[in-house]
Measured scan of single mutants.
Amino acid sequence: EAKQAFKELLKEKRVPSNASWEQAMKMIINDPRYSALAKLSEKKQAFNAY
């Protein structure tokens, strides 16, 4: 599932759970899995759940 892949990406890149969305994006934007969720709102939702 795309959300699961996105959460795994956050874990693998060691994005701190208290990081802001902007900080997290800088760490993950170059990974192909960043595109797993098409909409930015879906990415933010998955990030907030993380």
Rank of each mutant, 00 (worst) to 15 (best):
N30A: 12
R14S: 09
K11A: 14
S35G: 13
S20D: 11
E42G: 03
K44M: 10
A24Y: 10
S35P: 05
L40Y: 11
K43I: 00
F47Q: 07
A49D: 15
A46N: 00
F6H: 00
Y34S: 06
A49G: 06
Q4S: 12
K26A: 11
K26F: 02
N18S: 13
A38Y: 06
V15R: 01
A5H: 10
K11S: 12
E8R: 07
E12W: 00
P32C: 03
N18V: 05
A24R: 04
L9A: 09
K39A: 11
A36P: 03
K7F: 14
L10N: 06
K7I: 15
N48R: 12
A36R: 11
A46K: 02
F6R: 03
K3V: 13
S35E: 15
L40D: 15
D31I: 00
A38K: 14
A49F: 02
A46Q: 09
A46S: 08
N30Y: 10
A36E: 10
S20E: 10
S20C: 07
L10F: 01
S20I: 01
S35W: 13
K44G: 05
Q23N: 08
N48L: 09
S17N: 11
F6D: 06
S20F: 00
K39M: 09
Q4R: 13
K11P: 00
A38R: 12
N30I: 00
A38L: 09
Y34A: 06
F6N: 02
L37M: 07
P16I: 03
Q45K: 10
L40V: 11
K7W: 15
E8C: 10
D31R: 02
Q45P: 03
A2Q: 03
A49R: 08
D31A: 01
A5R: 12
L10T: 03
S20M: 03
K13D: 09
L40M: 14
M25C: 13
A19K: 04
D31F: 00
S20P: 07
N48F: 03
A24S: 05
S41H: 04
E12P: 00
P32S: 12
L40T: 12
F47T: 01
K39W: 04
I28S: 08
A46Y: 01
K11R: 14
A19P: 03
A19G: 06
K7L: 15
A19F: 08
E22Q: 06
K11L: 15
E8G: 05
S17Q: 14
A46C: 12
D31H: 08
F6P: 02
K26Y: 05
R14M: 13
F6C: 00
K43D: 03
N30W: 08
A24G: 07
Q45H: 11
Q23H: 13
Y50C: 06
L37V: 13
A24L: 00
E12S: 09
A38G: 14
M25A: 11
K3R: 12
N30R: 10
A49T: 12
K3Q: 12
K26N: 13
M27S: 09
M27G: 05
N48E: 15
A49P: 01
W21K: 08
K13I: 00
K7C: 12
K13T: 07
P32L: 01
A36K: 11
L40P: 08
M25Q: 15
R14H: 07
K26I: 07
K11Q: 15
A38V: 11
S17F: 15
A24V: 06
M25H: 14
S35V: 09
E42W: 03
K26M: 09
K7S: 13
P16G: 04
A38C: 10
V15C: 04
K3T: 11
R14D: 12
L40A: 11
S17T: 13
Q4K: 14
E42D: 15
L37A: 04
K44W: 03
P32F: 03
I29V: 15
P16Y: 01
K44D: 08
E8H: 05
Q23Y: 06
S17V: 15
L9T: 04
A5Q: 14
M27C: 04
L10M: 08
S35I: 07
N30F: 05
I29D: 13
R14G: 15
Q45T: 07
K3C: 05
K39V: 09
K13E: 00
Y34F: 06
V15F: 00
K44V: 13
K13P: 01
S20W: 01
I29M: 15
I29Y: 13
L9V: 05
E8A: 10
A5K: 15
A19Y: 12
Q23T: 09
A38W: 03
S17P: 15
K43V: 06
A38H: 13
E22I: 06
Q45E: 15
Q23G: 06
S41V: 06
V15H: 01
Q23P: 05
L40C: 05
Y34G: 04
D31V: 00
L40I: 09
N48D: 09
F6S: 08
K26Q: 15
V15S: 00
E22N: 08
N18I: 03
K43G: 04
E22L: 05
L10A: 04
L37E: 08
E12L: 02
D31T: 03
P32R: 08
E8M: 10
E8I: 05
E22T: 12
L40H: 11
F6W: 01
